[in-house]
């Protein structure tokens, strides 16, 4: 077999393999969340409300999967939009609250969160996040990657300054002074930015907010249906609350006014 013949065969085989793999790839490729969302909007405009709701639900699931794998406020925002359109007010508010935690200054997130809150069956005051989460909202004006970049840059500056100090002769006072300033500033930046990143993790762990996702749930005074009702009226989907304690299948929640009650775990969704 000549070299040119072999090369031709390899090329043909490679093309065939590429074609087959692309065909399989097309079959398996998931439809993007935004495509589903667009299809749902089309279905809604053409009057197929039932189909639209189903598609909105699917797109919400896809958006949420994206948000959970690579978290961002924007992805949670899109999840909230899709959930709200699918009629899942509780889950929509939970998604918008997550988005707001990650991007507290974003006006679109705040507007849609407000819209979702107004769509609820009944108004319940929102629950304030814990102090550390409120503090975190201040520094989250600068997004996490930027703060991480600053922290890493400060870290590198600190070590570079240290290396320079090791290398430079003691007689070069001015140069050593400059490097000393670089090292100190780097250390300061790295500590500050690193602390905010750690603070984000801590704030999320401390944030025990949840949202009612059942259409209607009556809080009980204990962890069982046999206990008396804890509130006059049932809570509706979208009511924001704070988790106080958990037992198998039941969670004790606290509303903004301090009213406490137990609800089934399936009736609420925790933010984090």
């Amino acid at each position: 077999m000549s070299f040119s013949t072999m090369r031709t065969r390899i090329a043909v085989l490679a093309c065939a393999a590429l074609f087959v793999s692309s065909a399989f790839a097309n079959d398996d490729a998931p439809i993007s969340a935004q495509t589903l969302f667009d299809e749902a909007m089309e279905a809604s405009q053409s009057g197929s409300q039932h189909e639209a709701q189903l598609l909105y639900g699917k797109s919400a699931d896809a958006f949420e999967a994206e948000a959970r794998s690579d978290e961002s406020g924007g992805r949670w925002f899109n999840t909230g939009n899709a959930r709200l359109q699918a009629g899942e007010i509780g889950r929509a508010i939970a998604a918008f609250l997550r988005a707001q935690s990650l991007a507290p200054a974003d006006s679109a997130i705040l507007a849609n969160l407000d819209e979702a809150r107004r769509s609820r069956e009944a108004i319940t005051a929102p629950v304030d996040p814990p102090g550390v989460a409120l503090l975190a909202q201040r520094w989250r004006i600068v997004d996490e990657p930027t703060r991480a970049f600053v922290a890493i840059a400060g870290w590198v500056c600190f070590w570079c300054g240290l290396c320079a100090m090791l290398l430079l002769d003691a007689s070069k006072v001015r140069a050593r002074g400059l490097w000393k300033i670089t090292m100190t500033a780097g250390a300061l930046l790295a500590c500050l930015a690193g602390a905010t990143l750690l603070g984000d993790r801590f704030a999320r762990r401390e944030d025990s907010r949840a949202v009612v996702i059942s259409a209607e749930v009556l809080p009980r005074k204990g962890n069982g249906d046999s206990f008396a009702a804890a509130t006059e009226a049932p809570l509706h989907a979208g009511a924001e609350c704070e988790i106080m304690a958990t037992r198998p299948n039941w969670t004790e929640i606290s509303l903004a006014g301090g009213v406490r009650g137990w609800v089934p775990n399936s009736a609420i969704e925790r933010l984090w």
């Binding site: 990650l102 974003d106 507007a111």
Partner: peptide, 20 residues
């Protein structure tokens, strides 16, 4: 106001409130 603010684009969704 005609309801919700539109979805974020893929790029916006990735950048707004992104995590490290």
């Amino acid at each position: 106001v005609g309801g919700l603010v539109a979805n974020a684009t893929a790029m916006e969704a990735a950048s707004v409130g992104s995590t490290f």
